[in-house]
Computed example of a mutant assay.
Amino acid sequence: MATEESRTVQEAYPMMGGDGLYSYAKNSTQQRKATDSAKEPIKKAIAEKLGKEILQSSKTFRIADLGCSVGPNTFFAAQNILEAVESKYKSEGLNSQIPDFQVFFSDHTSNDFNLLFTSLPQDRRYYVAGVPGSFHGRLFPKNSLHFVHSSYAIHWLSRAPKEVVNKNSPAWNKGRIHYSNSGDEVVLAYKAQYDKDVQQFLQARAQEIVYGGLMVLIVPGIPNGTHHSQSLPSMNLELLGSCLMDLARKGMVSEEKVDSFNLPIYNMSPQELEAAVERNGCFSVEGVEYLPLVVPNVSGESKINGQVLASHLRAAMEGIIKQHFGEEILDLIFDSYRKKIEENSSIFNFGKAVHFFIILKRISENQLS
């Protein structure tokens, strides 16, 4: 019988590897802009929140990027963090005590680590290690990390809720691949899976991060109080689902195959994530900031470019779709999505979304109020 860990690994679908037309490396400019926008907030968080006792006791400063994918965004994030920590040492008058830096790049075992390592910056000032595995469980020894970073990753669940593909469940999500415009039972099933996964994530990090260490999460989510049917990310995935149903109606895939496919994604609000942190009790929320929301296109901000959006989505979704439906329909699905997103570009005017940045600090029991 499969263990929970092996099931999680089996259901892992990393971003598109390689350096081809639809690779994540070439189709992650939106994520890069979020990394750039977070540079100054990260510098400020380290300057104000990272304790001097950590600086004085650390001969090697350890940084982990969870959900690193294949680069290059993860390298920019690592460099931003390293520079901010060095500035902190200098501001504290500890120039002679600046430590070695070790950066752990972590993602699922099926991530394209070959591309990641071959594209490492030649002038990097840190030691590198790859750590394969799911961040929904432990990845590192206890009290070994000083700073954890994760961008555009924790909205991915460890799995889609089992109930939504069960014909005998009230939460059966027939004809849909996500919870947008689904019944309350489907939404509650996704919310329950998110609650479970985020607690596992936080509990694992609580064991790995030293007291006083920091964790920064960059999250594509929805504004506080937004109903899921008004969520731009959900509307976007609903369009993708409609492309699959169109193929089912044409007999190119079976409708049962679509019914058994649900994306393991939950777009949380800042309020939901803060509540999860409070329930966990091992971290304090040191700040929440909103980052600029950017829709990728190539010809200016006034017109949506469907091909760019389709390529971005394909870089993230090709693996999970290919695994379930096969590769024969990939071009058809994403070409259909390109047309639909151009026809329905108005969703970017009324769909609601936020990209937010949350700073967490590992606290000891005697710091709990």
Rank of each mutant, 00 (worst) to 15 (best):
K174E: 15
G175K: 03
G175I: 04
H178W: 12
H178V: 05
H178S: 12
Y179T: 06
Y179P: 03
Y179C: 06
S180E: 10
N181V: 04
S182W: 02
G183E: 09
D184M: 10
E185H: 10
E185P: 00
E185C: 01
E185F: 04
V186A: 02
L188P: 00
L188G: 00
L188S: 14
L188E: 14
A189Q: 02
A189K: 02
Y190C: 04
Y190Q: 05
K191F: 11
K191A: 12
A192T: 14
A192R: 14
A192S: 15
Q193S: 03
Y194G: 02
K196C: 12
D197N: 12
V198S: 07
Q199V: 06
Q199T: 08
Q199R: 08
F201S: 01
L202Y: 06
L202R: 03
L202T: 04
L202I: 08
Q203R: 07
A204P: 00
R205P: 01
R205C: 06
A206E: 02
A206M: 01
A206C: 02
A206T: 03
Q207C: 00
Q207K: 10
Q207A: 10
E208N: 02
E208K: 05
I209W: 02
V210L: 12
Y211A: 11
Y211P: 13
G213H: 06
L214C: 05
L214S: 06
M215S: 12
M215T: 09
M215Q: 13
V216P: 00
L217S: 05
P220K: 01
P220I: 09
I222S: 11
I222K: 12
P223R: 10
P223Q: 12
N224Q: 09
T226S: 10
H227V: 11
S229W: 09
S229E: 14
S229V: 09
S229A: 13
Q230D: 15
S231P: 01
S231W: 01
P233R: 05
S234P: 00
M235N: 02
M235G: 03
M235C: 07
E238M: 04
E238G: 06
L239S: 07
L240H: 03
L240R: 05
S242P: 04
S242C: 09
C243L: 09
C243H: 01
L244E: 06
M245Y: 11
M245L: 14
M245H: 11
L247K: 11
L247Q: 10
A248N: 11
K250A: 14
G251F: 09
G251C: 12
M252F: 11
M252R: 15
M252H: 15
V253C: 08
V253S: 08
V253W: 02
S254Y: 09
S254C: 13
E255A: 15
E255Q: 15
E256A: 15
K257C: 15
K257E: 15
V258K: 02
